[in-house]
Every structure is written in structure tokens, then in C-alpha cells.
Design a protein around this nucleic acid. Sequence first.
DNA 1: TAGATTGTTAATCGATTAACAATC
DNA 2: TAGATTGTTAATCGATTAACAATC
Lengths: 211, 211
Amino acid sequence: MGKNHKDISMAVIRRLPKYHRYLKDLLDKEVYRISSKELSAMMGFTASQIRQDLNNFGGFGQQGYGYNVEELYGEIQKILGLMASYNTVIVGSGNLGQAIANYTNFQKYGFKLMALFDTNPKLIGMKIRDVPVFDIDELQGFIDEKQVDIGIICTPKEFAQDIADKLVKSGVSAIWNFAPIDLKVPEDIIIENVHLSDSLFILSYLLNNQE
Amino acid sequence: MGKNHKDISMAVIRRLPKYHRYLKDLLDKEVYRISSKELSAMMGFTASQIRQDLNNFGGFGQQGYGYNVEELYGEIQKILGLMASYNTVIVGSGNLGQAIANYTNFQKYGFKLMALFDTNPKLIGMKIRDVPVFDIDELQGFIDEKQVDIGIICTPKEFAQDIADKLVKSGVSAIWNFAPIDLKVPEDIIIENVHLSDSLFILSYLLNNQE
DNA sequence: TAGATTGTTAATCGATTAACAATC
DNA sequence: TAGATTGTTAATCGATTAACAATC
């Protein structure tokens, strides 16, 4: 009946954002009640897996009825930590960094972008959606002062480990890493990778080994 | 001794790009020989898992010696289909589309960007690294004519399914999807998703459920 | 040859699915 | 109440790890 979240396997956790997305869609469509069977048909998970997954966090459903969409959506938002607020910085302000800075949806879920950083003099001093781009030399001072929770690394891979070290030293709790490298950080620092080329290579594999 | 690639589990396949990365690094460092034990220490997989993984595709090692880095790297490139060449288009030429267009590394591995598409008149007619941005109305004609293999969707989610339908109709084999939505496509079309917000939400979860 | 390390089988572990009693 | 659907236990399936004979 809701075990300690620490015990929950990553397999389950990685499915949570998908529940979040589908429940949001249902709410937008003004569907207020859903069964695991219906969710199963929509999402492609088995109904059994859905009930197992959700029951890790609590008994959100009701026998004979199913789940209240609004309530379940709220619970999953809480579980994912989307009710909180986070200060973030982006390091590396090229196209990718700017793309993320411009993705306003993240603001909506509590991820507040405080600043971007770069080494390129053409970028330093610019603003991206009102957020300033600073010289990377100012990174550490800024983080110390502003209580940044999440550092987002969008630099080329050569610089990524050095930036990670600086972020950790200045006290960020988590790094969202877009550089194609596995960063070495202390155990208590959370790393979430988006390895674009890994993803493209898997697509390539599948394309070459179809059916 | 190399089973049919179709039988290999996605768990194994999703590890392949990481092998590819580490072997590339070793080659760059002029390391020409490696054992599963050494790889294990570097990559954080067990030596046993590494040998199992590689043996799905063939016996690339040698008892008492280990693996020839150059050979193994070559094999994995072949397995991933990185010796071939692919025609790609990007649909949605905002920051994210441009970021991907500018990532020259993809060219290096055989992913040739033929064109970008957008609806924004300010973008149409531009060139990004010599690649033109066309009106999205020209998408279908272009794909039909140029034999495009991979469509890359970088549009907002509202347009993604419609674009996917058009890509499929025009005959692409695979879609690399960056829109935060699960696309519905025929079975034989390969979809690889990069759900940035899913990734960020997982980071958020981990941040809230540490230790 | 002796030592090292693979390829591969067997054992274990974990995740998914099936089944059903509880209950709304 | 009867029907529906959950929460949860048990069974199955698949993936990882351990062990070791084969062999370089």
C-alpha cells in the first residue's frame, strides 16, 4: 500500500511520465474516469502492469469503478515532483541550449531557467526569452549565490566533464546531460542523460534488422 | 554464435551504442586490446553481461586474449548499421530542428540531411549548413522524389501525428520523433522517440526520492 | 606449458502477466 | 444485489549473473 519510493524499480519509474502524459490528455478531453483496461488499450501496457505500477505508490483506484483521472493525474504529478519548483541553468547556449531554453512547457512544470552560459562572445550578453547568457567564468559564482538545483549540459562532449565538475562543486543536486559522454560525479548527484546519437543509432539498428 | 538479429532483446540493443562510444574512445587513446573485465570496470556492466551481449552477434573475442578493439568497433558499427547511408529530412525547423541539423557528427555516420521543412515564412528559403528549408507543403513531393529513409519530427506535438502520416504515406521507413506524443504508425514503420520532458520528469522524480 | 580470458551453460534474480478474492 | 474492477498474491517469463570447460 505504497512502499518506500526508494524501493521502486527504475523500470516502473521510467513509465511514470507516460502515465502523466496520457492522463493529461484524458483530462483535456474531459474524461474523468478510467479503468486499467481502458488505459491498457490506449497505452499498450497490460492492465495488470498498470495496476501493479500504480499500486507501488498507493491505492489510487476503487473497485468496480476504476481511477478518477483528475485525482490520479494529481498523484502522479506529486510522485514525479512536479508540484515543486526548481532553479536551473543551461551551460552551452548553442542551438540545443536555446531550444531547451525556449521550451516554455518546462517553466509550466516548475523548472525555472535562471541563466544560460557560454564561451562564445557573440552569445554572451544576449537574452533568450528574458533569460541572460553569461560568460562561463561566472558559472560558479552564480550557482553559489542563486541556489541552482539542476544544471543542464548542452556543450560539446570535450567540455562536459569539466562543466559537470564545476556544477557539482557549486552545489547542484542534479545534472541533465545532453553531451554524448557518461559523466563521472559523486554518488549523491543525480544524472539523467539524453544521448541523442545513441537514440539515432538504435533507430539505425532497427532499420537494418527489420522483421 | 550469432543468432538471428531479430531474436535479440531490446535490452541488449539499447546497450550497443554505449559499447560503440567506449570502443571509439579506446581507439582514440590507441588502446588496441581489451578484456571484458576491463570494459566492465570502465562501463559499469558486468563482464559476464558484456560477453553475453557481444556473443549474441558473434564470437568476436579470443580466449586468453580478449577483444581486438579495432575489430570489435568495426563489428558494432556494422551491427548498428553505421556503414550504410541514409537520407533524412527534418520537419520543424525551430531551435531543436536546427540543433540537429547542425550536429555534423550525424553526417559522419551516414545520416545525410536532404532538407528541412517548416511553415514559418521567415525560415522558408533559409539554409542551414547548406541545407535548404522548404515549405511544409513540399514535403510529400520531396520525399517521393528523393528516397528519404528517415523523417525527423521536431514540430510541436499538435502537428506531429499529421506529419507522421505524411511521412509514412510518402514512404519513409523510420521516424525519429522529438514531439512529446506517441505516434500511431503502421507496424513496419520504425519509431524511435526522444521524449525530452519524460527525461526531465524522471530527473525530477529522482531528485525528490533520493537515498 | 601455464595463465588468461573467452564462449556458453546453468543458476539466480527481477519484472511482467495471470488469476482471483475483496469490495465498491 | 449483480457487475465491474481494483489490489494483491502466485505463476511465468525474461534478463542478468555466476561458473566453468574450452582454448588461445
